[in-house]
Amino acid sequence: MKTNLHFIVNPIAGKGKNELSTDMLEAYFPKSEFVISIKKTEFVLHATALTKASIEEGAQIIVACGGDGTINEVASCLVNTSVFLGILPMGSGNGLASNLKIPKNFKKALSIIKNQNTIAIDTATINGKPFFSNVGVGFDAHVISDFEENTTRRLFSYVKSTLRTLKKYHYKNVVELKYNGTTELISPFLLFVSNSNEMGYKMSLTPRASLQDGLLDVVIVPELSRFKLMLFTMLFLFKKHHWLKEVRFQQLRALEIKGLDNTILKVQKDGGLFTLKEPNIEIAIHPKNLTVCVKK
């Protein structure tokens, strides 16, 4: 029986030159073994609609071809299903793919999909919406907001967005944080909740996080002085931010965040802005409910 294999391609991800053809793919996936379908996204959330259609069409493997945003849209539809997620990293950061050791090399990534070696990974939700890598409240969400205004999505663009945000960032919101039966009020510079050990571009706030441990890794950074803010940034670049005593780490299965005075907080989800409709945020882990093609 032939494997029904669908590719959801974001043509403008990363460098914006992402092209797949049936002839190209049939060199790796012979007609005798695979039925191939290629679908290209044309607008935001189109990958979601295309993935749902592919599921209805009986796809057994659906390959997200793009960055973390495209992967989020495709994978969100595959949670708690028997359909395998394949990944062709074509984005700028490619955090989840890197965490799963899926290379950017086209041939090697296709080989992983063809072999159909899979693992089950944890996923998480924020207010019921799936995410796979991380969610952030505070500084990183403001960086993403600046980054999304750029027409180019490269590492240098991300660095420039970070520097611009550092200059103008004055985060004074107080949030109520609830976890493990405790409640605290904090004014965080950064509140970062991660399921994976990489944010993209080989950068990480949670290098010990695992996609299979059933836990969220949480980093809490309080409001910092200008000097300590610069120090934190430098330490982060060398993955030594844990040296700063103000930085706290937690491993949790769930937590609640609420902006006081009904403040609607700015949030990023898997590297894209996530629009909240209310001040309450509920985040939870869901163990091993997504099947992904990975290297043996």
Rank of each mutant, 00 (worst) to 15 (best):
M1K: 08
M1V: 06
K2V: 11
T3K: 11
H6P: 05
H6V: 15
A13E: 02
Y28L: 06
F29T: 02
S32M: 12
F34N: 01
K40W: 13
E42S: 15
F43V: 12
V44E: 15
L45V: 14
T51S: 03
E56V: 10
G58R: 07
A59T: 00
S82M: 01
F84G: 08
L85W: 04
P89G: 00
A97N: 06
N99V: 11
L100C: 05
I102N: 07
F106D: 06
F106R: 06
K108F: 04
A109G: 03
S111H: 10
I119Q: 04
D122Q: 06
A124Q: 04
I126G: 09
N127L: 05
N127H: 04
F131M: 08
N134I: 15
F139M: 04
A141K: 10
S145C: 10
S145M: 12
F147S: 09
E149C: 13
K160V: 14
T162A: 14
L166I: 12
N173W: 06
V175R: 08
E176S: 07
Y179W: 09
N180S: 13
S187E: 15
L191S: 03
S196D: 00
N197A: 11
N197Q: 07
S204K: 03
L205F: 12
A209K: 01
L224E: 05
L224P: 05
K228H: 14
K228Q: 12
H242W: 12
H242C: 14
H242G: 11
R248M: 13
R248E: 15
F249D: 01
K258G: 08
L260S: 01
I264Q: 10
K266F: 05
K269Q: 14
G271F: 01
F274E: 10
N280W: 07
I283P: 03
I285S: 07
H286N: 12
P287S: 11
N289C: 10
V294C: 06
